[in-house]
Amino acid sequence: MSAVLDVRGVVKAFGDNVVLRGVDLSVDEHQVVALIGGSGSGKSTLLRCASLLETVDDGQVLLDGEDITDPRVDADAVRRRLGVVFQAYNLFPHLSVLDNVVLAPTRVHGRSRADARDEALTLLGRIGLADKAGEYPDRLSGGQQQRVAIVRALAVHPRVLLLDEITSALDPELVGEVLRVVREVAAQGMTIVMATHEMGFAKQVADTVCFLDAGVVLESGPPEQVLGDPVEPRTRQFLSRIIDAGRL
């Protein structure tokens, strides 16, 4: 079975700063992959390359076998098949929660408003926010906003969900409610790639953990192995720093 998302030798530089130096990453259907690595190691950049928010400088990204880094590909059509959730939520402040969620299904996927609305309300109900549907984003807590952002990404039925450190802007007591939603989505079989600093969560939910360092995937494998008994000294070093910070 071929991978849903296949990153092959991706290179990305900002000026002189070569952030990705040939990253390989393959994500199968229903798999959850956690990207870990120090700050500035390029986790966000990799996810932005995969969602075509950045153009790669070399290498390929395949989505369901199709090379989406080919300039002849319709980037909008590709993004329609992806769901992205950002660290800073990025909800649209001038639209209500419900309108945030139904925007893409109605405007991009051509679904009827009633239909999209029903599904949006179901999804919002599942994360306990159905009563906030008419509210504007700035009246919600950070955790609530981030859960809405997840629902907004799910509402287009993406092939793969890309999550970029979605809990790092949140107060510790709000992290749990967001991770609970991710866990549920993963349990329903969604294919997920997530950059995260929550090692405990990666351990529970991820099928594969990839350690990104110096622009390459230095080590990857099941969470018990990568997080519990890493082969590479750099991985050990990174993890011991994390343990010192009390996050594992």
Binding site: L53, R79, F86, F92
Partner: peptide, 21 residues
């Protein structure tokens, strides 16, 4: 710019992003 990024990542075209977001 993150508003634009969020809109584009939902599949909205440049034009739709400008007009709606």
């Amino acid at each position: 710019p993150s508003q634009r990024a969020a809109a584009r990542s939902l599949g909205l075209t440049h034009r739709q992003t400008t007009r709606i977001v």
